[in-house]
Design a binder for these strands. Structure first.
Lengths: 211, 211
DNA sequence: CGGTCATTTGAGCGGAGTCAAATTGAGTGG
DNA sequence: CCACTCAATTTGACTCCGCTCAAATGACCG
């Protein structure tokens, strides 16, 4: 973690009346690639809205196995918790800037927060279906379509995460992810413009691969 | 979810008696074993608090693969959704009775609902870790401990769900679940008083099997 | 150009799945 | 109370998808 980045994350004003004022002057924090935003057991009191960059939320088992619970991209918000402390690691995957909104105890932010929580629950529950019942090919195909959609549905887009992040998100290994990418490329459904830039050639066919 | 992780998640309990006072006169509905409470695409407008019985929340893929997203036991509440319609099936696994609490558009229930949503999100995210990264043995051991805890931590308790429900919840097959049960029984960690009644003999050892 | 790290590719293995048969057990009617 | 039925569960034999281990290739940077 970068010390400068950590310091920046703590410069937050205590009282926000609204969660996301559009012309916000809330503090802007920046994190370098790979730096930690928060860790389990740390006090949870802020929401983070990503201005640019991308974040992974993950947890580890004692023997090093890791599960990425979710990715957050530009425009998305993370950081809300049931309890007073965090349950996961949040780390910037690339250079990332966030607007930090601290929650007062008793404000009008709850309607927005409720929406975020319900949306987060649905996303997590749908991810359970993916990881519990889909094949490696189905998982990767669905992942690419999700990434495409969340970046405006463009034909080509950059993956802000490494193969290891993708593997840990989909409950696979890097090798399996790499092999599925290779198979999709060989069958002409996608192109890899560079190692992190994906172009979707046959969106319909790709969609057909998802169960 | 990992067994240890559940402790952290209990700060906000899903039993929110303030939402549903025990002397409530809200309608009491009963469902026979196997009957449907709601289905995807149906209008979502009520919360259901279970008086007795047990419910599964699940979804199916087009080819019949099924994933149980969560179980709800007596005292727990389900039915909240992001959108106006349901995303999952809710079905009674045994004879079940619920208090149905319809949400007015703009009531004071939101703080409680927020707690339920956040708790549900955390449970789902922890389940992602289980399904994504744990072995069959770890999943079943953690499941039994979770069931025990949620029924008051008794040494022996009834499983309200079938082996198929357990398998679809843990992302396994019935055969694998059955084999793991057999192995746990053979090594003396549990006893099966009957097909659905489990007695935990070595709780500590069982906990040691969870990652 | 050499070093380091991420990714890809190859070979072989193993945990969980599949298919099939045996067994248990909960109902049901005689 | 027992015999019968049918579904749920268990057990066995074998397969296969994804994992592990290992080596090669590629990308980036000083």
């Amino acid at each position: 973690m970068t010390y400068a980045a950590r310091d920046a994350s703590t410069e937050v004003s205590p009282n926000m009346s609204s969660v996301f004022p559009s012309n916000s002057s809330t503090p802007l924090s920046t994190f370098s690639a790979g730096s930690e935003i928060y860790a389990p057991r740390q006090k949870a009191s802020c929401l983070y809205r990503i201005e640019f960059g991308a974040v992974r939320l993950h947890r580890m088992l004692s023997d090093g196995r890791r599960q990425v619970v979710d990715f957050y991209l530009a425009g998305e918000t993370f950081g809300f918790e049931v309890s007073r402390t965090h349950s996961f690691f949040a780390e910037a995957m690339v250079a990332t800037s966030t607007r930090t909104h601290c929650l007062a105890d008793n404000t009008g932010t709850q309607p927005e927060l409720l929406g975020l929580a319900l949306h987060g629950m649905l996303r997590a529950q749908e991810h359970i279906l993916v990881i519990g019942r889909q094949t490696a090919m189905e998982r990767v195909a669905g992942f690419l379509l999700d990434m495409s959609d969340r970046q405006g549905g463009l034909k080509h887009f950059d993956l802000p995460m490494s193969r290891l992040d993708i593997a840990d998100y989909l409950g696979l290994t890097i090798e399996t992810v790499s092999r599925v990418f290779a198979k999709l490329r060989a069958s002409g459904l996608i192109k890899l413009r560079s190692i992190r830039c994906v172009e979707i050639i046959e969106k319909t066919a790709l969609r057909g691969l998802c169960a």
